[in-house]
Each structure stands twice: as structure tokens, then as C-alpha cells.
Computed example of a mutant assay.
Amino acid sequence: MTIQRAERSTPQMTERAAADRHQPVLRDRVVDLLAPALQQPGAVYVDATLGMGGHTEAILRACPGARAVGIDRDTEALALAGERLAGFGERFVPVHAVYDEIPAALAELSISRADAILYDLGVSSLQLDEEERGFAYRMDAPLDMRMDQSRGMTAADVLNGYSEAELTRILKDYGEERFARKIARALVRRREQEPFTTSGPLVQLLHEVVPAASQRSGGHPAKRTFQALRIEVNAELSTWRAALPAGLDLLPVGGRVLVLAYHSLEDRIAKQLLGAGATSSAPPGMPVELPEQRPWLRLLTRGAEQADDQEIAANPRAASVRLRAAERIRETAPADLHAPADHKENRR
């Protein structure tokens, strides 16, 4: 693992400022839920998925005594966020790392705790908008899909190298694609003629393979396949299973964590971990609950909150968001804190 401080960008690094390109999802609700943990001078806020810095900007404005560490695997996002947040000076530090590396990233900065942590999961606005990244299926672009373009396999590597069974698995598990087996079979046949390199031929194949009736009722036929490829390429679920426990372990009593999930598997992991921490571990029927069996988290939301119609109209990418938040209320967490692994996933 290599962790380094990201360099701040200059105005020449991008044609459009990050603030003009990015509208953070549920920004005001995020601030409302996390700000109570960031009121003391020197409080540490960690944006585990910094993106273009919209949430961090709002937190730093609302909590003038807090400082922020912004973590992202995407170097372009770090540059844009660094430009956006440069006015906060030393209150903001950008770090190039993956969000399951938070403990090491903070240790390198001589920080031992995080008073509030935000995880805004999934693909960012920047990654969707940049044609050459290959995340969007509405344009022909190289099949990359790496959030960190400095390392790891690409979507083309997956499409051209995975077996039919492996392709079926990721399409079904990560894309929740009804026609996973049919698509995987067609992918293997097509790549024998010519390897996949750009998204155009892939989208064309999906138009041909997914039944017309499903396309009319289920949206764009490439939506689920692109989602599955992105999750596999970036090992998003295995990383997330490790990241949330690592973050929770850094919270002091009174510290808060907030998760914005856009996929049912991501949300399930958050629901299980936060729910377990907010539930007594005492066996049913025990007359006395021991101190170590008491809940160590307090849920701050009733179930998962969603964006309202007004926000979705202004920011369509908020349509699928699920927000969960919790506060640490006890010092010691169960030693076996982890999320169950639902599926085998690419791990690099």
C-alpha cells in the first residue's frame, strides 16, 4: 500500500471548477447529522470518498473549528477537490488512498481518531462525466472503469479474460441482471472474433441480446452490465466490507458515521454492521445484560433515508441513494466486528 499526500491543483488543471461540475447528494442532511460531532476545536472529519469535495466544503463551512482529511483513490478527483478547497488552507488535507486504508492514512498524519466519517459510495459525478474513463454507456470510450487509473485491471481485461461462468456471476450478483447467462454467452462469442476495447461494441451487443420488452420496461440495456463491471474492476464490495469496520473503530464516543449507498449490496453491508452495533449481544432470555453486551452504536436514522422529489429533480443521481448514520455510544466494540462476505470478488 502506498499512501501519499495529493498535490493541490492549479486553475490550469481543469476547464471547469469542481463546484460547477458537482452537486453533492443530500448535502444539507449530511451536515445536519455529522456537525454535532465536529463542534469542538480540532475535531477531525474524514471524507472517505472525497470526489470533488462538495460534502467536505459544506462541513468545513458549518464547523469552523474542524479540520478535514479527504481520501480518494482517484487522482483527478483529488486535484479538483484540492482546487475547490484550497481556501481552507491547512484545515484540509487531501490523501491518495482507498477508503479501507483510512487507519494508515490517518496514522501517517499523526491522527489517532476520526470524530465524523462520511462514505459516499459508488461512481462519482466526475467519473461519469469524463468520457475517457469509460464509466458511461451513452458514449463510445475505452473500457477502463478504474477509479484509480494508476493500478489494477480494466473493464476490458474482465470482458476479455473472464470465463463465461465468471462473467455470469458478476452480471447476476453485482448487476442484478436477469439475462446474465445469455449476455455472458454472447460476450464470449463476440470476443473470439475481436477483443473488446471500447464501450460502443459492448453497448451494441447488449442492445441485441437483451429482449426488446425488457429494454422498454427496464431502462437502458447496458445499465446493469456497466454497474457490474465497475464493481468488479474496483473490488468495491470487498473494499467496503473492510472499510466500514475500520472507520467505526476510529470513532471516539460521540463520534458519528454516515453512509450514502446507491446499490442494494452496499446498503445491505451498512445495514448489517450498523444494526449489529446498535443491538444488544446478550442471549435472549438473559435476566441481566452485561456491560460488554450493551449496544455500542446508536442509529441516527430510522431505516434508510431517501432523497425527496425536489432533490431528485435537481440532482437525478440522488434517485437511488440510501442514507444511514450512527453515533458511537460506548468505547469497546465486539472483537468479531465484520460484514459477511456475500460473494467472491476480484481482490488485487
Score class of each variant (00 low, 15 high):
residue 99 Y to A: 07
residue 327 E to A: 11
residue 341 A to I: 15
residue 52 M to K: 13
residue 52 M to H: 14
residue 130 E to M: 12
residue 193 Q to S: 12
residue 66 A to G: 12
residue 24 P to F: 00
residue 189 R to K: 14
residue 126 L to E: 02
residue 114 A to K: 02
residue 268 R to M: 08
residue 315 N to M: 07
residue 296 W to L: 02
residue 50 L to N: 00
residue 15 E to K: 15
residue 259 V to H: 02
residue 80 L to C: 09
residue 167 L to I: 04
residue 40 Q to M: 15
residue 187 L to A: 05
residue 63 C to T: 11
residue 46 V to S: 03
residue 289 E to Y: 08
residue 330 R to C: 10
residue 176 E to K: 08
residue 287 P to M: 12
residue 127 Q to T: 03
residue 274 L to E: 01
residue 202 L to W: 01
residue 285 G to A: 14
residue 13 M to C: 13
residue 130 E to S: 14
residue 101 E to S: 12
residue 326 A to M: 03
residue 12 Q to P: 12
residue 156 A to H: 01
residue 112 S to G: 10
residue 136 A to M: 09
residue 235 A to H: 08
residue 57 E to W: 06
residue 283 P to M: 03
residue 176 E to D: 12
residue 238 S to E: 11
residue 173 D to P: 02
residue 18 A to I: 02
residue 91 R to F: 07
residue 274 L to Y: 04
residue 194 E to M: 11
residue 162 Y to F: 13
residue 312 I to C: 06
residue 142 P to E: 04
residue 209 V to K: 04
residue 154 T to E: 08
residue 39 Q to M: 15
residue 186 A to C: 10
residue 131 E to M: 12
residue 69 V to M: 05
residue 26 L to W: 00
residue 240 W to T: 06
residue 204 Q to P: 04
residue 268 R to S: 13
residue 269 I to W: 01
residue 121 L to P: 12
residue 267 D to I: 01
residue 96 H to Q: 10
residue 80 L to F: 12
residue 88 F to M: 07
residue 80 L to D: 05
residue 109 L to A: 11
residue 81 A to M: 06
residue 104 A to F: 09
residue 119 Y to A: 06
residue 134 G to A: 09
residue 23 Q to C: 12
residue 338 H to E: 14
residue 167 L to V: 01
residue 339 A to D: 05
residue 257 V to P: 01
residue 71 I to K: 00
residue 194 E to F: 04
residue 6 A to I: 02
residue 242 A to S: 13
residue 5 R to D: 14
